[in-house]
Design a protein around this nucleic acid. Sequence first.
DNA 1: CCAAGTTGTCTATGATACTAGACAACTTCA
DNA 2: TGAAGTTGTCTAGTATCATAGACAACTTGG
Lengths: 242, 242
Amino acid sequence: MNMQDTASSGVALWRLVADGIERGIADGRFAAGDKLPGEMEIAETYRVNRHTVRRALAALAERGIVRAERGSGTYVEAQKLAYPLRSRTRFSEIVGADGREPHGRLIEATDDVATRELARELGLKTGAPLVRIEAIRLADRTPICVSTTWLSAELFPGAGEVFAATRSMTKLLEHFGVRDYRRGATRITAGIVDATDAARLDLPLGRPILVVDATDHDLAGKPLVTKHSRFAAERVEFLVES
Amino acid sequence: MNMQDTASSGVALWRLVADGIERGIADGRFAAGDKLPGEMEIAETYRVNRHTVRRALAALAERGIVRAERGSGTYVEAQKLAYPLRSRTRFSEIVGADGREPHGRLIEATDDVATRELARELGLKTGAPLVRIEAIRLADRTPICVSTTWLSAELFPGAGEVFAATRSMTKLLEHFGVRDYRRGATRITAGIVDATDAARLDLPLGRPILVVDATDHDLAGKPLVTKHSRFAAERVEFLVES
DNA sequence: CCAAGTTGTCTATGATACTAGACAACTTCA
DNA sequence: TGAAGTTGTCTAGTATCATAGACAACTTGG
Protein backbone atom coordinates (compact mmCIF):
# COMPACT_ATOMS: atom_id res chain seq x y z
CA MET A 1 0.00 0.00 0.00
CA ASN A 2 1.17 3.42 -0.85
CA MET A 3 0.48 6.75 0.74
CA GLN A 4 -1.89 7.94 -1.91
CA ASP A 5 -4.15 4.96 -1.51
CA THR A 6 -5.53 6.78 1.47
CA ALA A 7 -7.60 9.21 -0.57
CA SER A 8 -4.54 11.32 -1.34
CA SER A 9 -5.21 13.20 1.82
CA GLY A 10 -1.86 14.89 2.11
CA VAL A 11 -1.24 13.16 5.43
CA ALA A 12 1.56 10.62 5.58
CA LEU A 13 0.61 7.03 6.36
CA TRP A 14 2.94 6.81 9.32
CA ARG A 15 1.20 9.86 10.72
CA LEU A 16 -2.18 8.19 10.47
CA VAL A 17 -0.81 5.15 12.25
CA ALA A 18 0.81 7.27 14.95
CA ASP A 19 -2.40 9.21 15.47
CA GLY A 20 -4.35 5.99 15.69
CA ILE A 21 -2.08 4.57 18.35
CA GLU A 22 -2.08 7.82 20.28
CA ARG A 23 -5.84 7.91 20.20
CA GLY A 24 -5.86 4.35 21.50
CA ILE A 25 -3.75 5.47 24.43
CA ALA A 26 -5.91 8.51 25.08
CA ASP A 27 -9.05 6.36 24.92
CA GLY A 28 -7.62 3.99 27.46
CA ARG A 29 -7.51 1.09 25.01
CA PHE A 30 -3.83 0.98 25.92
CA ALA A 31 -3.14 1.93 29.50
CA ALA A 32 0.08 3.36 30.84
CA GLY A 33 2.63 0.59 31.06
CA ASP A 34 0.73 -1.66 28.70
CA LYS A 35 2.55 -3.49 25.99
CA LEU A 36 1.44 -2.50 22.54
CA PRO A 37 0.79 -5.16 19.91
CA GLY A 38 3.91 -6.22 18.03
CA GLU A 39 5.05 -4.16 15.08
CA MET A 40 3.95 -6.90 12.70
CA GLU A 41 0.50 -7.03 14.25
CA ILE A 42 0.09 -3.27 14.10
CA ALA A 43 1.21 -3.36 10.47
CA GLU A 44 -1.49 -5.88 9.70
CA THR A 45 -4.27 -4.01 11.45
CA TYR A 46 -3.41 -0.79 9.63
CA ARG A 47 -2.53 -2.65 6.40
CA VAL A 48 0.86 -1.01 6.12
CA ASN A 49 4.44 -2.14 6.05
CA ARG A 50 6.25 -2.84 9.28
CA HIS A 51 8.71 -0.02 8.51
CA THR A 52 5.84 2.39 8.36
CA VAL A 53 4.73 1.24 11.78
CA ARG A 54 8.27 1.73 13.03
CA ARG A 55 8.20 5.28 11.72
CA ALA A 56 4.99 5.91 13.62
CA LEU A 57 6.34 4.37 16.80
CA ALA A 58 9.56 6.35 16.46
CA ALA A 59 7.55 9.55 16.29
CA LEU A 60 5.62 8.56 19.40
CA ALA A 61 8.80 7.56 21.21
CA GLU A 62 10.34 10.90 20.28
CA ARG A 63 7.52 12.57 22.14
CA GLY A 64 7.92 10.24 25.08
CA ILE A 65 4.56 8.59 24.58
CA VAL A 66 5.83 5.06 24.01
CA ARG A 67 9.07 3.29 24.74
CA ALA A 68 10.47 0.41 22.70
CA GLU A 69 12.33 -2.39 24.42
CA ARG A 70 14.36 -4.54 22.16
CA GLY A 71 13.38 -8.16 22.20
CA SER A 72 10.42 -7.49 24.43
CA GLY A 73 7.97 -5.04 22.97
CA THR A 74 6.85 -1.45 22.87
CA TYR A 75 5.22 -0.03 25.95
CA VAL A 76 3.02 2.90 26.74
CA GLU A 77 5.00 5.40 28.76
CA ALA A 78 3.21 6.71 31.77
CA GLN A 79 2.80 10.41 31.45
CA LYS A 80 5.43 12.11 33.54
CA LEU A 81 4.21 13.34 36.87
CA ALA A 82 4.48 17.12 37.01
CA TYR A 83 6.26 17.71 40.28
CA PRO A 84 6.45 21.37 41.28
CA LEU A 85 9.37 22.25 43.50
CA ARG A 86 8.13 24.69 46.08
CA SER A 87 9.07 25.34 49.65
CA ARG A 88 5.91 23.56 50.65
CA THR A 89 5.74 20.34 48.67
CA ARG A 90 3.60 17.43 49.78
CA PHE A 91 3.84 14.31 47.69
CA SER A 92 0.24 13.37 48.28
CA GLU A 93 -1.02 16.77 47.14
CA ILE A 94 1.07 16.71 43.99
CA VAL A 95 -0.04 13.25 43.01
CA GLY A 96 -3.62 14.04 43.89
CA ALA A 97 -3.52 17.15 41.73
CA ASP A 98 -2.51 14.89 38.87
CA GLY A 99 -5.66 12.88 39.39
CA ARG A 100 -3.78 9.87 40.70
CA GLU A 101 -3.82 8.04 43.99
CA PRO A 102 -0.78 8.63 46.17
CA HIS A 103 0.65 5.78 48.17
CA GLY A 104 3.56 5.39 50.54
CA ARG A 105 5.17 2.24 51.83
CA LEU A 106 7.80 1.69 54.43
CA ILE A 107 10.65 -0.46 53.24
CA GLU A 108 12.85 -0.35 56.27
CA ALA A 109 13.30 1.66 59.44
CA THR A 110 16.60 1.31 61.25
CA ASP A 111 18.66 3.11 63.82
CA ASP A 112 21.60 5.06 62.55
CA VAL A 113 24.13 7.59 63.72
CA ALA A 114 24.81 10.98 62.23
CA THR A 115 27.70 11.40 59.89
CA ARG A 116 29.26 14.81 59.90
CA GLU A 117 27.20 15.88 56.93
CA LEU A 118 23.92 14.57 58.31
CA ALA A 119 24.66 16.22 61.62
CA ARG A 120 25.25 19.56 59.93
CA GLU A 121 22.02 19.30 57.99
CA LEU A 122 19.98 18.43 61.04
CA GLY A 123 21.74 20.75 63.47
CA LEU A 124 22.97 17.86 65.55
CA LYS A 125 26.33 16.61 66.68
CA THR A 126 28.23 14.02 64.71
CA GLY A 127 27.32 10.59 65.99
CA ALA A 128 23.94 11.68 67.30
CA PRO A 129 21.35 8.91 67.21
CA LEU A 130 19.07 8.95 64.19
CA VAL A 131 16.19 7.01 62.72
CA ARG A 132 16.69 6.11 59.09
CA ILE A 133 13.54 5.42 57.09
CA GLU A 134 13.63 3.85 53.68
CA ALA A 135 10.33 4.46 51.93
CA ILE A 136 8.83 4.27 48.51
CA ARG A 137 6.20 6.58 47.07
CA LEU A 138 3.82 5.61 44.33
CA ALA A 139 1.24 7.27 42.13
CA ASP A 140 -1.54 4.76 41.60
CA ARG A 141 0.56 1.62 41.35
CA THR A 142 3.60 3.19 39.70
CA PRO A 143 6.66 3.71 41.88
CA ILE A 144 7.80 7.31 41.63
CA CYS A 145 10.67 7.56 44.06
CA VAL A 146 12.46 5.89 46.89
CA SER A 147 13.74 8.11 49.64
CA THR A 148 15.96 7.75 52.64
CA THR A 149 14.89 9.99 55.47
CA TRP A 150 16.84 10.73 58.62
CA LEU A 151 15.33 12.14 61.81
CA SER A 152 16.74 12.71 65.23
CA ALA A 153 15.97 9.65 67.34
CA GLU A 154 15.76 11.87 70.38
CA LEU A 155 13.24 14.33 68.92
CA PHE A 156 11.14 11.69 67.21
CA PRO A 157 11.29 8.49 69.24
CA GLY A 158 9.70 5.54 67.48
CA ALA A 159 9.46 7.41 64.19
CA GLY A 160 9.81 4.19 62.22
CA GLU A 161 6.71 2.62 63.75
CA VAL A 162 4.71 5.81 63.29
CA PHE A 163 5.65 6.03 59.65
CA ALA A 164 4.84 2.37 59.09
CA ALA A 165 1.39 3.06 60.43
CA THR A 166 0.67 6.40 58.81
CA ARG A 167 2.68 5.91 55.60
CA SER A 168 3.09 9.65 55.43
CA MET A 169 5.89 11.91 56.50
CA THR A 170 3.45 14.77 57.02
CA LYS A 171 1.36 12.71 59.41
CA LEU A 172 4.45 11.47 61.19
CA LEU A 173 5.48 15.02 61.91
CA GLU A 174 1.93 15.90 62.96
CA HIS A 175 2.07 13.01 65.40
CA PHE A 176 5.02 14.70 67.05
CA GLY A 177 3.29 18.04 67.18
CA VAL A 178 4.68 19.61 64.03
CA ARG A 179 1.77 21.38 62.42
CA ASP A 180 3.56 22.78 59.39
CA TYR A 181 6.97 22.70 57.83
CA ARG A 182 8.90 24.10 54.93
CA ARG A 183 11.48 22.75 52.59
CA GLY A 184 14.89 24.36 52.76
CA ALA A 185 17.46 24.34 49.98
CA THR A 186 16.94 21.51 47.52
CA ARG A 187 19.83 20.03 45.60
CA ILE A 188 19.08 18.11 42.43
CA THR A 189 21.47 15.86 40.57
CA ALA A 190 21.05 12.92 38.26
CA GLY A 191 22.55 9.46 38.19
CA ILE A 192 22.02 5.89 37.17
CA VAL A 193 19.82 3.67 39.24
CA ASP A 194 21.60 1.05 41.33
CA ALA A 195 20.41 -2.52 41.61
CA THR A 196 18.61 -2.00 44.91
CA ASP A 197 16.66 1.03 43.81
CA ALA A 198 16.01 -0.52 40.41
CA ALA A 199 14.16 -3.36 42.08
CA ARG A 200 12.26 -1.00 44.34
CA LEU A 201 11.30 1.35 41.52
CA ASP A 202 10.58 -1.48 39.12
CA LEU A 203 13.10 0.02 36.72
CA PRO A 204 15.48 -1.75 34.35
CA LEU A 205 19.12 -1.38 35.23
CA GLY A 206 20.92 1.56 33.67
CA ARG A 207 17.97 3.94 33.79
CA PRO A 208 18.50 7.53 34.83
CA ILE A 209 17.28 8.81 38.15
CA LEU A 210 16.84 12.24 39.62
CA VAL A 211 18.52 12.55 42.98
CA VAL A 212 17.11 15.11 45.36
CA ASP A 213 18.65 16.08 48.68
CA ALA A 214 16.63 18.35 50.90
CA THR A 215 16.03 19.22 54.49
CA ASP A 216 12.69 20.25 55.94
CA HIS A 217 12.48 22.85 58.70
CA ASP A 218 9.72 23.92 61.02
CA LEU A 219 8.40 27.45 60.71
CA ALA A 220 11.03 28.66 63.17
CA GLY A 221 13.75 27.32 60.92
CA LYS A 222 14.75 24.35 63.04
CA PRO A 223 15.76 21.33 60.94
CA LEU A 224 13.34 18.43 61.25
CA VAL A 225 14.22 15.79 58.68
CA THR A 226 16.69 15.44 55.87
CA LYS A 227 16.05 13.30 52.87
CA HIS A 228 17.87 11.66 50.03
CA SER A 229 15.35 10.80 47.30
CA ARG A 230 15.79 9.00 44.02
CA PHE A 231 13.12 9.58 41.39
CA ALA A 232 12.61 7.48 38.29
CA ALA A 233 13.51 10.13 35.74
CA GLU A 234 11.15 8.73 33.14
CA ARG A 235 8.17 9.06 35.45
CA VAL A 236 8.57 12.52 36.84
CA GLU A 237 9.29 16.02 35.68
CA PHE A 238 10.28 18.71 38.14
CA LEU A 239 8.77 22.11 37.75
CA VAL A 240 10.60 25.11 39.14
CA GLU A 241 8.65 28.30 39.53
CA SER A 242 10.30 31.13 37.71
CA MET B 1 11.98 24.18 1.08
CA ASN B 2 11.08 20.59 1.52
CA MET B 3 8.20 18.92 3.22
CA GLN B 4 10.10 17.87 6.28
CA ASP B 5 11.25 21.36 7.05
CA THR B 6 7.82 21.81 8.55
CA ALA B 7 8.72 20.01 11.75
CA SER B 8 8.49 16.66 10.00
CA SER B 9 4.85 16.65 10.85
CA GLY B 10 3.75 13.98 8.42
CA VAL B 11 1.41 16.44 6.74
CA ALA B 12 2.19 17.43 3.17
CA LEU B 13 3.03 21.05 2.51
CA TRP B 14 0.35 21.45 -0.11
CA ARG B 15 -2.17 20.27 2.46
CA LEU B 16 -1.08 22.95 4.89
CA VAL B 17 -1.42 25.58 2.17
CA ALA B 18 -4.84 24.27 1.14
CA ASP B 19 -6.02 24.25 4.74
CA GLY B 20 -4.75 27.78 5.20
CA ILE B 21 -6.63 29.06 2.17
CA GLU B 22 -9.77 27.22 3.15
CA ARG B 23 -9.58 28.71 6.62
CA GLY B 24 -9.22 32.12 5.02
CA ILE B 25 -12.42 31.53 3.11
CA ALA B 26 -14.26 30.25 6.17
CA ASP B 27 -13.07 33.25 8.18
CA GLY B 28 -14.38 35.60 5.53
CA ARG B 29 -10.92 36.92 4.67
CA PHE B 30 -11.84 35.81 1.16
CA ALA B 31 -15.50 36.20 0.35
CA ALA B 32 -17.45 34.24 -2.22
CA GLY B 33 -16.53 35.48 -5.67
CA ASP B 34 -13.34 37.15 -4.44
CA LYS B 35 -10.18 36.74 -6.41
CA LEU B 36 -7.48 34.99 -4.48
CA PRO B 37 -3.93 36.35 -4.53
CA GLY B 38 -1.89 35.12 -7.48
CA GLU B 39 -0.17 31.77 -7.25
CA MET B 40 3.19 33.48 -6.96
CA GLU B 41 2.01 35.67 -4.13
CA ILE B 42 0.53 32.73 -2.25
CA ALA B 43 3.78 30.86 -2.78
CA GLU B 44 5.69 33.72 -1.21
CA THR B 45 3.42 34.08 1.79
CA TYR B 46 3.62 30.37 2.55
CA ARG B 47 7.29 30.18 1.52
CA VAL B 48 6.71 27.31 -0.87
CA ASN B 49 7.10 26.70 -4.57
CA ARG B 50 4.42 27.85 -6.94
CA HIS B 51 3.80 24.21 -7.94
CA THR B 52 3.00 23.40 -4.35
CA VAL B 53 0.46 26.19 -4.33
CA ARG B 54 -1.02 24.83 -7.54
CA ARG B 55 -1.36 21.44 -5.86
CA ALA B 56 -3.23 23.06 -3.00
CA LEU B 57 -5.50 25.04 -5.32
CA ALA B 58 -6.17 21.94 -7.38
CA ALA B 59 -7.32 20.14 -4.26
CA LEU B 60 -9.62 23.02 -3.38
CA ALA B 61 -10.93 23.23 -6.94
CA GLU B 62 -11.60 19.50 -6.87
CA ARG B 63 -13.89 20.10 -3.93
CA GLY B 64 -15.53 23.02 -5.67
CA ILE B 65 -14.25 25.57 -3.20
CA VAL B 66 -12.26 27.64 -5.69
CA ARG B 67 -12.25 28.00 -9.43
CA ALA B 68 -9.21 28.92 -11.52
CA GLU B 69 -9.60 31.08 -14.58
CA ARG B 70 -6.69 31.05 -16.92
CA GLY B 71 -5.13 34.40 -17.47
CA SER B 72 -7.33 36.01 -14.87
CA GLY B 73 -7.00 34.47 -11.46
CA THR B 74 -8.42 32.01 -9.00
CA TYR B 75 -11.75 32.81 -7.44
CA VAL B 76 -13.69 31.70 -4.43
CA GLU B 77 -16.66 29.69 -5.59
CA ALA B 78 -19.94 30.80 -4.16
CA GLN B 79 -21.45 28.03 -2.16
CA LYS B 80 -24.06 26.25 -4.18
CA LEU B 81 -27.59 27.35 -3.56
CA ALA B 82 -29.55 24.53 -1.96
CA TYR B 83 -32.68 24.33 -4.05
CA PRO B 84 -35.32 21.99 -2.65
CA LEU B 85 -37.67 20.53 -5.23
CA ARG B 86 -41.09 20.48 -3.72
CA SER B 87 -44.52 20.82 -5.17
CA ARG B 88 -44.60 24.31 -3.77
CA THR B 89 -41.34 25.96 -4.71
CA ARG B 90 -40.92 29.72 -4.77
CA PHE B 91 -37.59 31.03 -5.93
CA SER B 92 -37.71 34.02 -3.62
CA GLU B 93 -38.36 31.86 -0.57
CA ILE B 94 -35.54 29.48 -1.40
CA VAL B 95 -33.03 32.23 -1.95
CA GLY B 96 -34.18 34.08 1.12
CA ALA B 97 -33.81 30.95 3.23
CA ASP B 98 -30.20 30.88 2.07
CA GLY B 99 -29.70 34.35 3.49
CA ARG B 100 -29.42 35.95 0.06
CA GLU B 101 -31.40 38.56 -1.78
CA PRO B 102 -33.60 37.21 -4.57
CA HIS B 103 -33.97 39.22 -7.75
CA GLY B 104 -35.83 38.72 -10.97
CA ARG B 105 -35.45 40.53 -14.26
CA LEU B 106 -37.44 40.43 -17.44
CA ILE B 107 -35.33 39.86 -20.51
CA GLU B 108 -38.01 39.68 -23.09
CA ALA B 109 -41.75 39.18 -23.35
CA THR B 110 -43.18 38.23 -26.75
CA ASP B 111 -46.27 36.75 -28.26
CA ASP B 112 -46.07 33.14 -29.33
CA VAL B 113 -48.25 30.31 -30.43
CA ALA B 114 -48.56 26.89 -28.84
CA THR B 115 -46.69 23.99 -30.36
CA ARG B 116 -48.31 20.65 -29.91
CA GLU B 117 -46.24 19.93 -26.84
CA LEU B 118 -46.83 23.31 -25.22
CA ALA B 119 -50.50 22.95 -25.94
CA ARG B 120 -50.63 19.59 -24.24
CA GLU B 121 -48.83 20.90 -21.19
CA LEU B 122 -51.13 23.88 -20.85
CA GLY B 123 -54.34 22.10 -21.78
CA LEU B 124 -54.80 24.28 -24.86
CA LYS B 125 -55.17 23.69 -28.54
CA THR B 126 -52.17 23.68 -30.83
CA GLY B 127 -51.65 27.16 -32.19
CA ALA B 128 -53.36 28.86 -29.24
CA PRO B 129 -51.98 32.32 -28.50
CA LEU B 130 -49.33 32.42 -25.78
CA VAL B 131 -47.17 34.92 -23.98
CA ARG B 132 -43.54 33.88 -23.80
CA ILE B 133 -41.49 35.42 -21.01
CA GLU B 134 -37.73 35.17 -20.87
CA ALA B 135 -36.56 36.00 -17.39
CA ILE B 136 -33.48 35.68 -15.29
CA ARG B 137 -33.35 35.01 -11.58
CA LEU B 138 -30.49 36.01 -9.32
CA ALA B 139 -29.38 35.47 -5.75
CA ASP B 140 -27.71 38.67 -4.58
CA ARG B 141 -25.98 39.62 -7.80
CA THR B 142 -25.25 36.11 -9.04
CA PRO B 143 -27.40 34.80 -11.90
CA ILE B 144 -28.89 31.46 -10.94
CA CYS B 145 -31.11 30.56 -13.84
CA VAL B 146 -32.78 31.80 -16.96
CA SER B 147 -36.25 30.53 -17.67
CA THR B 148 -38.68 30.66 -20.52
CA THR B 149 -42.26 30.74 -19.35
CA TRP B 150 -45.35 30.28 -21.46
CA LEU B 151 -48.83 31.37 -20.43
CA SER B 152 -52.10 31.47 -22.26
CA ALA B 153 -52.49 34.94 -23.79
CA GLU B 154 -56.23 34.65 -23.35
CA LEU B 155 -56.16 33.74 -19.66
CA PHE B 156 -53.39 36.19 -18.78
CA PRO B 157 -53.67 39.20 -21.08
CA GLY B 158 -50.71 41.56 -20.78
CA ALA B 159 -48.74 39.09 -18.71
CA GLY B 160 -45.45 40.46 -20.04
CA GLU B 161 -46.08 43.95 -18.72
CA VAL B 162 -47.20 42.65 -15.35
CA PHE B 163 -44.11 40.52 -14.98
CA ALA B 164 -41.87 43.42 -16.00
CA ALA B 165 -43.42 45.45 -13.19
CA THR B 166 -43.60 42.84 -10.46
CA ARG B 167 -40.53 40.79 -11.44
CA SER B 168 -42.16 37.79 -9.86
CA MET B 169 -44.18 34.97 -11.30
CA THR B 170 -46.01 34.52 -8.03
CA LYS B 171 -47.14 38.13 -8.03
CA LEU B 172 -48.09 37.92 -11.69
CA LEU B 173 -50.42 35.04 -10.96
CA GLU B 174 -51.81 36.87 -7.92
CA HIS B 175 -52.56 39.80 -10.20
CA PHE B 176 -54.79 37.50 -12.22
CA GLY B 177 -56.55 36.15 -9.15
CA VAL B 178 -54.49 33.00 -8.60
CA ARG B 179 -53.96 32.79 -4.86
CA ASP B 180 -51.94 29.60 -4.76
CA TYR B 181 -50.51 27.10 -7.16
CA ARG B 182 -48.60 23.86 -7.20
CA ARG B 183 -45.87 22.40 -9.31
CA GLY B 184 -46.71 19.36 -11.32
CA ALA B 185 -44.25 16.82 -12.66
CA THR B 186 -40.77 18.21 -12.95
CA ARG B 187 -38.32 16.87 -15.50
CA ILE B 188 -34.63 17.45 -14.93
CA THR B 189 -31.88 16.99 -17.46
CA ALA B 190 -28.44 18.44 -17.95
CA GLY B 191 -26.73 20.07 -20.89
CA ILE B 192 -24.11 22.54 -21.97
CA VAL B 193 -24.88 26.21 -21.88
CA ASP B 194 -25.46 27.86 -25.25
CA ALA B 195 -24.03 31.24 -26.17
CA THR B 196 -27.18 33.18 -25.37
CA ASP B 197 -27.70 31.69 -21.95
CA ALA B 198 -23.97 31.88 -21.23
CA ALA B 199 -24.10 35.62 -21.62
CA ARG B 200 -27.24 35.90 -19.52
CA LEU B 201 -25.90 33.67 -16.75
CA ASP B 202 -22.46 35.21 -16.91
CA LEU B 203 -21.04 31.75 -17.53
CA PRO B 204 -18.07 30.74 -19.68
CA LEU B 205 -18.99 28.69 -22.70
CA GLY B 206 -19.02 24.95 -22.24
CA ARG B 207 -20.25 24.98 -18.66
CA PRO B 208 -22.89 22.48 -17.58
CA ILE B 209 -26.42 23.55 -16.90
CA LEU B 210 -29.37 21.91 -15.25
CA VAL B 211 -32.45 21.99 -17.43
CA VAL B 212 -35.80 21.89 -15.68
CA ASP B 213 -39.14 21.56 -17.41
CA ALA B 214 -42.21 21.96 -15.26
CA THR B 215 -45.79 23.07 -15.34
CA ASP B 216 -47.60 24.81 -12.51
CA HIS B 217 -51.25 24.13 -11.82
CA ASP B 218 -53.81 25.84 -9.70
CA LEU B 219 -55.29 23.96 -6.77
CA ALA B 220 -57.99 22.52 -9.01
CA GLY B 221 -55.35 21.02 -11.27
CA LYS B 222 -55.76 23.41 -14.16
CA PRO B 223 -52.46 24.19 -15.91
CA LEU B 224 -51.37 27.79 -15.48
CA VAL B 225 -47.85 28.19 -16.78
CA THR B 226 -45.18 25.93 -18.19
CA LYS B 227 -41.51 26.69 -17.88
CA HIS B 228 -38.21 25.71 -19.38
CA SER B 229 -35.45 26.76 -16.97
CA ARG B 230 -31.68 26.55 -17.29
CA PHE B 231 -29.71 26.65 -14.07
CA ALA B 232 -25.97 27.27 -13.80
CA ALA B 233 -25.00 23.86 -12.47
CA GLU B 234 -22.07 25.23 -10.54
CA ARG B 235 -24.27 27.61 -8.57
CA VAL B 236 -27.14 25.43 -7.54
CA GLU B 237 -27.80 22.05 -6.06
CA PHE B 238 -31.23 20.48 -6.23
CA LEU B 239 -32.53 18.74 -3.16
CA VAL B 240 -35.16 16.05 -3.55
CA GLU B 241 -37.06 15.06 -0.47
CA SER B 242 -36.86 11.36 0.12
C1' DC C 1 20.11 -23.98 26.68
C1' DC C 2 16.81 -23.61 22.97
C1' DA C 3 12.93 -21.85 20.37
C1' DA C 4 9.79 -18.38 19.54
C1' DG C 5 8.85 -13.75 19.44
C1' DT C 6 10.37 -9.18 19.76
C1' DT C 7 12.83 -4.76 18.25
C1' DG C 8 17.05 -2.85 15.55
C1' DT C 9 19.43 -2.25 11.29
C1' DC C 10 20.78 -2.83 6.71
C1' DT C 11 20.00 -2.83 1.40
C1' DA C 12 17.04 -2.02 -2.41
C1' DT C 13 13.15 -0.25 -5.31
C1' DG C 14 9.33 2.50 -6.85
C1' DA C 15 6.06 6.22 -6.06
C1' DT C 16 5.21 11.03 -4.26
C1' DA C 17 6.40 15.51 -2.69
C1' DC C 18 8.80 19.62 -3.36
C1' DT C 19 11.67 22.62 -5.70
C1' DA C 20 13.41 25.03 -9.95
C1' DG C 21 13.17 27.05 -14.44
C1' DA C 22 11.09 27.92 -18.78
C1' DC C 23 7.55 28.80 -21.85
C1' DA C 24 2.67 28.69 -23.68
C1' DA C 25 -2.04 30.39 -23.45
C1' DC C 26 -5.05 33.53 -21.86
C1' DT C 27 -7.12 37.94 -19.66
C1' DT C 28 -7.01 42.58 -18.46
C1' DC C 29 -6.09 47.24 -19.05
C1' DA C 30 -4.12 51.28 -20.96
C1' DT D 1 -2.48 46.80 -30.38
C1' DG D 2 0.83 45.78 -26.87
C1' DA D 3 2.50 45.10 -22.20
C1' DA D 4 1.80 43.17 -17.87
C1' DG D 5 -0.07 39.78 -15.16
C1' DT D 6 -2.44 35.55 -14.80
C1' DT D 7 -3.04 30.33 -15.01
C1' DG D 8 -1.55 25.93 -17.65
C1' DT D 9 1.99 22.74 -18.86
C1' DC D 10 6.18 20.94 -19.76
C1' DT D 11 11.17 19.06 -18.09
C1' DA D 12 14.42 18.00 -14.45
C1' DG D 13 16.51 17.01 -9.98
C1' DT D 14 16.49 16.01 -4.93
C1' DA D 15 14.33 14.37 -0.79
C1' DT D 16 10.89 11.77 1.51
C1' DC D 17 7.42 8.07 1.80
C1' DA D 18 6.31 3.44 1.53
C1' DT D 19 7.22 -1.18 0.42
C1' DA D 20 9.98 -5.57 0.54
C1' DG D 21 13.23 -8.86 2.31
C1' DA D 22 16.88 -10.40 5.18
C1' DC D 23 19.40 -10.80 9.21
C1' DA D 24 21.22 -9.29 13.82
C1' DA D 25 20.40 -8.55 18.73
C1' DC D 26 17.72 -9.17 22.44
C1' DT D 27 13.91 -11.02 25.74
C1' DT D 28 10.89 -14.38 27.33
C1' DG D 29 9.25 -18.81 28.57
C1' DG D 30 9.66 -23.58 28.43
